[in-house]
Computed example of a mutant assay.
Amino acid sequence: MVAGWFAGDGEDFRLLGTRCSACGTVFFPREDTWCRNPGCAGAGLEEVALSRRGRIWSYTDSRYRPPSPYVTDPELPWEPYALIAVELESERIVVLGQASPGITVADLAVGMEVEVVPGVLHEDAETTWTTWRWRPTGVAG
Score class of each variant (00 low, 15 high):
residue 45 L to V: 04
residue 43 A to R: 10
residue 102 G to D: 12
residue 85 A to Y: 06
residue 86 V to Y: 01
residue 29 P to T: 12
residue 50 L to K: 01
residue 106 A to M: 01
residue 62 S to T: 02
residue 88 L to P: 06
residue 55 R to A: 15
residue 78 W to F: 01
residue 70 Y to E: 03
residue 74 P to I: 02
residue 63 R to K: 10
residue 76 L to H: 11
residue 96 L to N: 14
residue 47 E to M: 07
residue 90 S to T: 15
residue 68 S to C: 10
residue 71 V to Y: 11
residue 114 V to A: 03
residue 84 I to W: 05
residue 123 E to D: 09
residue 78 W to T: 05
residue 63 R to S: 06
residue 96 L to T: 10
residue 25 T to Y: 12
residue 41 A to N: 13
residue 30 R to S: 12
residue 60 T to N: 12
residue 116 V to T: 01
residue 43 A to Y: 09
residue 104 T to F: 03
residue 98 Q to V: 05
residue 101 P to S: 03
residue 64 Y to S: 04
residue 15 L to Q: 05
residue 49 A to P: 02
residue 58 S to R: 07
residue 99 A to Q: 00
residue 83 L to V: 15
residue 40 C to R: 15
residue 16 L to R: 13
residue 26 V to G: 01
residue 116 V to H: 05
residue 126 E to N: 14
residue 47 E to C: 00
residue 29 P to A: 13
residue 69 P to G: 02
residue 125 A to Q: 14
residue 89 E to C: 03
residue 81 Y to P: 06
residue 41 A to R: 00
residue 106 A to E: 14
residue 126 E to V: 06
residue 70 Y to R: 13
residue 76 L to T: 11
residue 19 R to W: 04
residue 20 C to F: 07
residue 116 V to W: 05
residue 94 V to W: 10
residue 72 T to Q: 11
residue 59 Y to I: 10
residue 31 E to W: 11
residue 53 R to H: 11
residue 108 L to Q: 02
residue 60 T to H: 01
residue 88 L to E: 08
residue 40 C to G: 06
residue 112 M to H: 10
residue 78 W to E: 11
residue 93 I to V: 12
residue 40 C to S: 03
residue 53 R to V: 04
residue 97 G to M: 08
residue 102 G to K: 05
residue 72 T to A: 14
residue 125 A to L: 03
residue 24 G to Y: 14
residue 39 G to S: 13
residue 43 A to T: 13
residue 25 T to C: 11
residue 74 P to W: 05
residue 16 L to Q: 14
residue 77 P to N: 08
residue 19 R to H: 03
residue 45 L to M: 08
residue 108 L to C: 07
residue 81 Y to Q: 01
residue 79 E to S: 12
residue 24 G to A: 06
residue 70 Y to F: 14
residue 95 V to E: 06
residue 49 A to S: 13
residue 99 A to Y: 03
residue 116 V to I: 12
residue 54 G to L: 01
residue 110 V to R: 07
residue 127 T to F: 05
residue 60 T to Y: 02
residue 113 E to T: 00
residue 129 W to D: 09
residue 86 V to I: 02
residue 119 G to E: 13
residue 39 G to H: 11
residue 17 G to T: 12
residue 123 E to W: 12
residue 27 F to V: 00
residue 41 A to E: 15
residue 22 A to S: 15
residue 87 E to G: 13
residue 99 A to C: 09
residue 76 L to P: 14
residue 124 D to A: 04
residue 76 L to I: 08
residue 107 D to Q: 04
residue 36 R to Q: 07
residue 23 C to L: 13
residue 19 R to N: 06
residue 26 V to P: 12
residue 104 T to Y: 04
residue 68 S to V: 12
residue 105 V to E: 08
residue 122 H to Q: 08
residue 114 V to Q: 04
residue 119 G to D: 10
residue 124 D to H: 04
residue 80 P to R: 04
residue 87 E to M: 09
residue 118 P to S: 07
residue 46 E to R: 13
residue 123 E to A: 15
residue 21 S to P: 02
residue 83 L to Y: 05
residue 111 G to H: 11
residue 51 S to D: 08
residue 103 I to L: 03
residue 96 L to G: 03
residue 115 E to M: 00
residue 110 V to F: 01
residue 52 R to I: 09
residue 118 P to G: 08
residue 36 R to C: 04
